[in-house]
Amino acid sequence: MRIMFLGDVVGVSGCSAIMKNLKKEIETYKIDFVIINGENADKSGVGLTEEICKDFFNCGVNIITTGNHVWDQKEIMKFIDKENRLLRPKNLFEPAPGKGFGIYELKNDLKIGVLNLMGNVFMKKSEDVFETAEKFLNTNKLKEDYDFLVVDFHGEITSEKNAIGHFFDGKATLVVGTHTHIPTNDARVLDGGTAYQTDAGMCGDYNSVIGMNKENSINRFFKKNSTKHYPEVGEGTLCGVIVDCDIETGLAKNIKSYILGANLKNI
């Protein structure tokens, strides 16, 4: 069983890279299940739309996770209520449209759970993520309720992501961070058998400032002659991880960082 997780898709560059490459990469790497974080996929660089979601599903994506920009394109509020394959962070203040966790059917009668969480430090206010995670694990068990569990932790700081990874160790197949758009060089299997990487990186143009136009971003730091952030539109790079899973235990056999594209290369 092989899972691919791709980090935040940013703007037209990220979407184009997904459309151009994903089907071929699924075939090349014999991927069984694909999860992407799509919260920056709109052409503006924030939010996503129903059309974008459908494009992703049509090119091989199984599940789309999100984060703090999930509601930036307001139309998604209606679509998320009827689309089971689109998730928002589970610890958003309730009531909120959509859901933060789903269980999905795989081949051979296997099931995979996908949990979307958002950090609390330097992020939009949401319910305590560790309390939410603890409540989740009290009622959802690996190899009882699902055969595999993937956790997308959308957070700003590495220590919070590290902590949630260890909290889920032995109880999830993969814990991977999103949001900061830069892939971290720490892919590994933790002591309890959970695959982990602090941040998956982004799918977008890396000749940028985390996907956004670099000149405008620099001007914003100087507080001069800048406009609202907007994405760079050069050739996109795909970034994420690929995990081989043990069907018997639901844990990870191994994890590898995955990079395909113009500006970044696997070392």
Rank of each mutant, 00 (worst) to 15 (best):
E94C: 00
L106H: 04
G102A: 03
F130Q: 05
K43F: 13
V34T: 15
D128S: 09
H69E: 02
R188N: 13
V175G: 10
Y206N: 02
E94A: 05
L48M: 15
L92C: 11
D72M: 15
E50M: 06
G38D: 04
K135Y: 09
V9F: 10
E248G: 07
K228D: 13
K54W: 00
N219K: 14
D191W: 00
L87G: 03
V233F: 00
N84P: 04
I26G: 04
H179K: 13
K24L: 12
S159F: 06
T249F: 01
C53M: 11
V189D: 12
N162P: 07
L137F: 08
G98A: 05
G47A: 04
N120H: 04
N62V: 03
N84W: 00
H229N: 14
V233A: 10
I76A: 03
S159N: 14
I210F: 06
G67V: 13
N68M: 04
R220D: 11
S16D: 12
L115P: 11
I267L: 13
K135F: 03
W71A: 01
I218C: 09
G119S: 03
T28H: 07
V175S: 10
H181F: 14
V70P: 04
S44E: 07
I247T: 15
N120M: 04
A200L: 13
G45C: 09
G60I: 09
T49L: 08
N219R: 14
G113P: 10
T194I: 09
F153M: 15
E248N: 15
I112C: 01
I76P: 12
K256M: 08
I103Y: 02
N213D: 15
A200W: 02
T173Y: 12
I52E: 05
L137N: 11
V189R: 05
N58A: 14
V61Q: 06
T180C: 06
D205Y: 09
F221Q: 12
F5K: 05
K24F: 04
V241N: 04
N263H: 12
A172M: 10
G192I: 05
K228H: 12
E232Y: 02
A17T: 08
G113N: 06
I31H: 09
L264W: 00
N185C: 11
K30V: 06
I157E: 12
L48G: 04
H154S: 10
V12H: 13
M77C: 12
N91P: 00
T132I: 07
T132V: 10
E235P: 05
N140H: 14
I164G: 12
E83R: 02
I36Y: 07
N40D: 14
G177Q: 07
D246L: 03
F167S: 11
K135D: 15
N185I: 14
H181A: 10
G240V: 00
I112K: 08
E39T: 10
N68I: 09
P89M: 06
D186M: 12
F33W: 11
F33Y: 15
N120Q: 03
K124I: 13
G38M: 02
I63Y: 08
K256S: 12
A262P: 00
G14S: 02
D128K: 11
F136G: 12
I35H: 01
K23I: 08
F33D: 04
H154Q: 10
D55Y: 07
D169W: 07
A17Y: 01
F33H: 11
V151I: 15
T184A: 08
